[in-house]
Every structure is written in C-alpha cells, then in structure tokens.
C-alpha cells in the first residue's frame, strides 16, 4: 500500500495501470457489462459465473505453480476427463469414499509421470505434457471402453458424493467454497513457505537455485504433483455435479486454464506470478464469457474475445517491462 501511494504521488499513473493492468481491466469489464446488461451485476448471476469458473480455477491453481517454476502443463484437460470418468465409474462399484481415493492415487501417479520426465529426466515440459494430453485421453477411452459413464440414477440424490458439486454452505455453492479454500491454501503455501520460495527460485534462475543447494529436480517434480492434485479435486467436483461424465469432458480445458494463468499476469518465463493473479484471471475469463452471453452475442464469440483479451494482457505486461507501448526492437 505504501508503494501504491508513493507511485501515485510520483504521478506515475501510466506505469501503475500498465503494471496492474489486469486489475484495471477487471474493473473496467465489470463496469462495462454492468451498464450493458442489468442482469449482469445480480448476485445470482455473479454466483453462477464464479461457480462455473471454479473448476477451471482449481486446475489453474496447480498450473500456476508449474508455470512459476518455469514449465508448462498441458495435460490437465485430459487428466480431468480421466479423473472424472474414473470417479464416476467407481462410485457405484466400490462406493464414493474408495472411488475418490483410488481416483486420486491414479491421477497423482499420472502427475508423477509428468514430474519424473520433466524434473528428473529433464525433458521439455511442452513435449511431455502435450504427449500426456493424448496418452491420457487414450487411457480414458481404454478404461471406459469408449462409453460415457453415469452414477446410477437411483442413488444420485442420496449419495453423499453429491455434496461436492451440488451442496452448499451458508447459501454458497460448494464448488465456490472449495475453489476459494484451496486457492487460499495454495496461495499461502506459495507466497509464504520455504517451499514456495524454492519454486520461485527454480523458475527465476534454475542454475542459481541449484547453486543455492535447492534440489531443482525435486521441486519441478513436486509442482506436477500439486497440479495433478488440483485436477483430482476438480474431477470430484465435476463428477459430483454432473453425476456422469463423457470421455472427453476436459477437452480444451488445458487452454482455458493456461489462458487464465497468463491473463492473471503470471509470466510464462517463470519466476514470477501469484495465486491471487490467477484467481483474478479466472474470474475475468468467466465474466467475459458470461457478459457476452448476456449481451446476446453467440456462444462462439467469446472464444475470439477471450483471445483478444489475452493478447491485450500479455502486451500490457511486456510493454510495462519494456517501458513503452510499441518498440522497434524486442
């Protein structure tokens, strides 16, 4: 806050906007949509946007940590399909508790494969997770035999499994509560613990991190475990909410998740970024999509607008670092 006041006093408002572009854009969007549609700023609408963003948000928490450590995770979408199909399929066979447990273990194993190949074998994260994206999709189809899965309709309303997607506490939907609780938890870990510090150091300068006695390989490995854990939680919520799943339910989520992270302002170069930024990125993405729908634009328009917003966000970010908006040289 002191820094903020000082900057305002220096009259450096342009750089303030550039540096915190994402917050400014967020407020601007909310005002614009609020004026454009009287349904936009209602509690019901806001809640529904946050609820539908919660799943992407939870996955984005893990991916944020992966990105801060200097890598990528494109496998979260198909991992979500895998986890959801598995937990729904096992629900009737072995009961909700064991189903969740088995699914989490399997998803964490997939994360461990990512982490092992990228952290210890030192393969490029883009290649590994892109490969995993398609491999896990194949695994999901083999597991389900190509059929979509459902929880038995007779137990759908009675199983305690329904609480994750359909329950609420004090009038607030459970997915929202889980999202914010997990975001706070992960946010605190990354911002204030020694582990978090190591993640930033590895992303900021892996060589210097190793020279400081940080076991880089383990840190990278761990980020993929965190990412897989978040996907597991998202799978539980999705399975519980729908009480069924298609084989490809997570398709395309990897891009939405990555878009949210970038939109929030976490640099793909690693070493910077935060959970708070990602939460805001997630909400912006959600509100843009919702706002466009309320304003009567067709569903697919939001994809184009989303792309434009991401380009704007990245451009502002780069421009703030360069110190000017258009540069003849990089």
């Amino acid at each position: 806050m002191a820094g903020f006041v000082e900057r305002m006093r220096n009259g450096d408002i342009k750089s303030l906007i550039a540096r915190n572009g994402i917050f400014v854009a967020f407020v601007a969007f909310m005002i614009a949509f609020g004026i454009g549609s009287d349904r936009f700023l209602t509690f019901d609408n806001l809640e529904s946007v946050v609820r539908s963003s919660a799943m992407i948000g939870i996955m984005a928490l893990g991916v944020t940590i992966v990105v801060i450590s200097g890598n990528l995770d494109l496998s979260v979408g198909s991992m979500l399909s895998f986890g959801t199909v598995m937990v729904v399929n096992l629900h009737d066979k072995i009961g909700p508790g064991p189903a969740i447990l088995v699914m989490m273990i399997c998803v964490l194993l997939l994360g461990a494969v990512n982490g092992f190949l990228i952290g210890f074998v030192r393969l490029n994260s883009l290649i590994v997770t892109l490969g995993m994206l398609s491999a896990i999709q194949g695994l999901t189809l083999i597991y389900s035999g190509g059929k979509n899965v459902d929880v038995n309709p007779s137990t759908q309303d009675t199983t305690w499994f329904r609480v994750f997607g359909r329950g609420e506490v004090a009038g607030i939907d459970m997915p929202i509560i889980i999202f914010f609780a997990l975001a706070s938890f992960v946010g605190f870990i990354i911002a204030f613990t020694p582990y978090g510090r190591r993640v930033y150091a590895v992303g900021g300068n892996p060589t210097a991190a190793v020279f400081s006695g940080i076991r880089r390989n383990r840190v990278v490995f761990s980020t993929y475990i965190v990412s897989a854990f978040c996907v597991g939680i998202a799978s539980i919520i999705l399975g519980s909410r729908v009480m069924g799943s298609q084989n490809n339910v997570g398709q395309g989520y990897e891009l939405l998740v990555l878009a949210s992270v970038i939109l929030g302002g976490t640099s793909l170069l690693g070493g910077s970024g935060s959970i708070l930024k990602t939460v805001i990125g997630v909400l912006i993405l959600g509100f843009i999509q919702n706002g466009l729908l309320l304003l009567g634009y067709p569903y697919f328009a939001q994809w184009i607008v989303t792309w434009i917003v991401i380009i704007l966000a990245v451009w502002l970010d780069v421009a703030a670092k360069r110190g000017r908006l258009l540069s003849p040289i990089a």
Partner: peptide, 13 residues
C-alpha cells in the same frame, strides 16, 4: 548473474 543470483527476486530473498 547466471549462478549466484535470482535476478528477479529481491535482495533479502
């Protein structure tokens, strides 16, 4: 720069 410091981190960290 390459081995000693994480340039984007603050002095204390």
């Amino acid at each position: 720069k390459e081995q000693g410091l994480v340039l984007g981190m603050n002095c204390r960290d």
